[in-house]
């Protein structure tokens, strides 16, 4: 087996192991949440017998480890259980499958994340390469100052500033990003423009500065001097001689920021009233809808692990020592 395939499989295995541990942590953490769902739904006045029956119906009376395995086995098959909400004291059951609750929200979140990523990743790579090419110039300093400024403000502040300029003073984009499954594609892009810009401003600095630093770091290598002495121009040196050796750190930072786009956007979602997973999770925590909270947390974990795995693999395949062993 090619060593790269072996390493990738190893990383994949480690990723799965990580996921397993994370699922245990998610489950235990939620176990430790204060309050009781049955009590919360049925109210303080409910008789202890009613609460106990209700708990039995939801399977909350079983020992924790059995509930964990039920949940984990279900999750592997794509079944995250049934939401607790929609039930009430009168016994009516309009509860939905967790998967059905999460799916449209996840789609929205991924849509916004992809849009932000499609703007932010190329933008930061290009800015990173250009600032490395002209490092210590006026251009370099301006870009650094500008990106540092945008990252230094809290997200909601950036969001409100954008709303002020692009929605209130000049009515270019809508200030509310309310989409539903019937919204068509073009309309969707138009409505999510401001949240996507907000996210872009928040994540560009990190990726751009890492690209710049990784390239400049390599410019001191003897093989860069060698390339200069073989007549390569500065652009050629950066693109052909430095960049191919700089992908590993850049990919790691990009993965980190992309993961943030999926799991860390709740503030932006709230500001723009965007129906994403973040909001869903916050609502579910408030209502003690344990299966939904667990489902969201699991999806966030998968996102993190998957993106970091991809960054790892990029680091491996761009390293000729691993790709072409002796």
């Amino acid at each position: 087996m090619h060593p790269v395939v072996k390493t990738v499989l190893e990383r994949l295995g480690l990723g799965l192991a990580t996921l397993f541990f994370v699922s245990i942590i998610i489950f235990s953490a939620i176990e430790m949440l204060p309050g009781d769902f049955g009590q919360a739904i049925l109210g303080q006045a409910a008789l202890p017998e009613t609460v106990a029956a209700f708990r039995q119906e939801l399977g909350l009376d079983k020992p924790a480890y059995i509930r964990y395995f039920d949940w984990a086995l279900g999750a592997i098959q794509g079944d995250l259980g049934t939401s607790f909400s929609g039930r009430n004291a009168s016994g009516a059951d309009r509860s939905a499958e967790v998967v059905d609750k999460i799916a449209p929200r996840l789609w929205n979140t991924l849509f916004l994340a992809s849009m932000a990523a499609l703007i932010a990743v190329p933008l930061s790579l290009i800015l990173g390469i250009l600032t490395a090419l002209y490092h210590n110039s006026f251009f370099d300093r301006s870009v650094n100052t500008a990106t540092l400024t945008t990252i230094s403000f809290p997200e909601f502040f950036v969001a409100y500033i954008l709303i002020l300029f692009f929605a209130s003073l000049n009515q270019i984009f809508p200030s509310l990003a309310n989409v539903d499954p019937d919204t068509n594609f073009g309309e969707r892009i138009y409505r999510t423009a401001l949240p996507a810009f907000t996210l872009t401003l928040v994540i560009v600095a990190h990726m751009m500065r890492m690209t710049r630093a990784a390239i400049i770091n390599l410019l001191a290598s003897p093989y860069i001097q060698m390339a200069k002495l073989s007549g390569a121009s500065q652009t050629e040196i950066i693109l052909k001689h430095a960049l191919p050796n700089a992908w590993a750190p850049i990919a790691t930072v990009i993965a980190f920021n992309l993961a943030y786009l999926v799991v860390g956007v709740v503030v932006v979602e709230v500001v723009f009233v965007y129906p994403g997973v973040g909001q869903l999770m916050v609502d579910a925590v408030r209502t003690r809808d344990i299966p939904v909270v667990q489902g969201c947390a699991l999806i966030f974990a998968v996102t993190y692990i998957l993106l970091n795995l991809i960054a790892d693999i990029i680091g491996i395949v761009t390293n000729p020592r691993l790709l072409h062993p002796k």
Binding site: Y223, M226, A227, G231, A232, H241, T318
Partner: peptide, 23 residues
């Protein structure tokens, strides 16, 4: 640059460090 790598070339001390690992 029109002279470098064309009419004049350079052989460095540490060949291991002076070759680009990526090519």
């Amino acid at each position: 640059r029109k002279y470098w790598g064309n009419r004049m070339t350079y052989v460095a001390q540490s060949a291991a460090a002076s070759f680009n690992p990526a090519h």
